[in-house]
Design a protein around this nucleic acid. Structure first.
Length: 376
RNA sequence: GUGGGUAUAGCUCAGUUGGUUAGAGCGCUAGUUUGUGGCACUAGAGGUCGAGGGUUCGAUUCCCUCUAUCCACC
């Protein structure tokens, strides 16, 4: 159940109630594709960072260790010792991003494993069954993610099929939630809006899936080749047609700036690999802008990554030490950088929520936008 | 001491049968990263080719001397 506590313009401050606890929104979900946050973080680290929701991946966990293994171990929560909500991505995007040889049909997608190349079939029913075995809090619908730019007719056919797939997902999820052996019988389902960069397709698609009374609505197929302005325009076009009493989730986005702009346009949920991937490559987000910790100028810099940050890394270690760890390719460097970047993202969301609570979001956003893209 | 080898980018080495602006890998410098194939990708800087002399229209390349260094032998 989703409750909007406050609104400022289109920006929403809300609460999403789940069997695994309440999610305060707007929220950033930390990406742990294979039931692990890359950079050697465990779930205790995530608690300290202030992470509310973790995202894991249907496709990856199906391949390894196998969703049947996770089910037999009591589901993802027990398996990785995480008590809070987990959202599982459906595998639709991975088919699009990982597999070059894929054959998309009405029944589902035929493609080959990125690990050993063996043939795999996944359709809406398979995706729901796997996610039910994983027993996540929220399951995502199985969709086709179209790369931008795409021809209008291809985008329309794809969006139409994604609606048909979504209906099959809902039927299968309802069936699975009713089975005796199901671990999480209250597993929720989010639908995914598609339609490439075409306002008419996006709006028509959103209207159709809004009728299905799902637990939440995602906007997918963005940040996959279109410009940032197009992305904002699509969000604006679709927002009026998304149910107001359900959370909106912008999939795979984005930079801190993207998140501020999307919150301002009515989005509640986010996830992105950017804080963790960039951290592993030495790009650090700070309250003063972006730091590339590999830069020579930090060789003898005794200050923390971000002087205003309260994370474990900034409280205890210097830029000079972090740079050394990265140069030496020590795992610890990645770990400390990931801890910081994830803290930064989660803290950004906490500040956004506070600003919305105190009706100062506009002012907060204006201040942040001026600084976030800069290099330190 | 004798004989032989080597000397080219910060490092390890290619190369030129003598011919425009001398290459690679690593390192270095900077940039990129958006529902994550675990450490990726893109670009850039950097060399009077050990020193001196000779042959030649022209030498990093051929010859001589020196220096450094490695190996073997005494």
């Amino acid at each position: 159940m989703f409750k909007v506590l406050k609104k400022q313009g289109n920006a929403r401050r809300g609460e999403f109630h789940t069997v695994h606890g309440v999610i305060q929104t707007p929220v950033f979900m930390n990406v742990g594709t294979v039931a692990a946050i890359k950079g050697a973080l465990d779930t205790f680290d995530l608690e300290n960072i202030g992470c509310q929701v973790q995202l894991s991946n249907t496709y990856h966990l199906h391949l390894r260790p196998g969703d049947d293994v996770v089910r037999d171990m009591g589901g993802l929560h027990k398996f990785m010792n995480w008590k809070h909500p987990i959202l599982t991505d459906s595998g639709g995007f991975q088919v699009f991003s990982l597999s070059k040889l894929r054959n998309i049909k009405e029944e589902g997608v035929y493609f080959s494993s990125h690990i050993d190349g063996h043939k795999i079939f996944m359709g809406p029913e398979q995706s729901m069954q796997i996610q039910s075995n994983l027993a996540s809090t929220i399951a995502m619908a199985f969709d086709e993610c179209v790369e931008n730019p795409a021809p209008h007719n291809y985008a329309k056919d794809s969006a139409d099929m994604t609606v048909r797939w979504l209906k099959r997902c809902k039927i299968e999820m309802d069936r699975l939630n009713g089975l005796d052996g199901t671990i999480n019988k209250k597993q929720m389902l989010f639908g995914i809006n598609q339609g490439s960069t075409y306002d008419d397709l996006r709006i028509e698609h959103m209207k159709e899936i809004a009728e299905l009374d799902l637990d939440g609505y995602a906007i997918g197929g963005l940040a996959v080749g279109e410009t940032t302005d197009e992305m904002y325009r699509i969000i604006e076009a679709v927002e009026p047609f998304a149910p107001i009493d359900k959370p909106r989730y912008l999939m795979g986005v984005g930079t801190p700036l993207n998140i501020l702009e999307a919150v301002d346009r009515g989005v509640d949920f986010f996830d992105c690999v950017m804080p963790s991937r960039n951290a592993r490559h030495g790009t650090i987000f700070t309250s003063n802008g972006i730091v590339n910790i590999l830069n020579a100028k930090y060789e003898r810099d005794d200050t923390p990554l971000d002087p205003n940050c309260k994370c474990h890394t900034c409280q205890n270690f210097s830029r000079a030490y972090l740079r050394h760890l990265f140069k030496a390719k020590e795992m610890l460097g990645m770990r400390l950088a990931v801890i910081h970047n994830l803290y930064f993202y989660n803290n950004l969301m906490a500040e956004i929520r506070e600003a919305l609570d105190s009706d100062t979001f506009d002012e907060y956003k204006r201040k942040k936008v001026a600084v976030l893209g800069q290099r330190v």
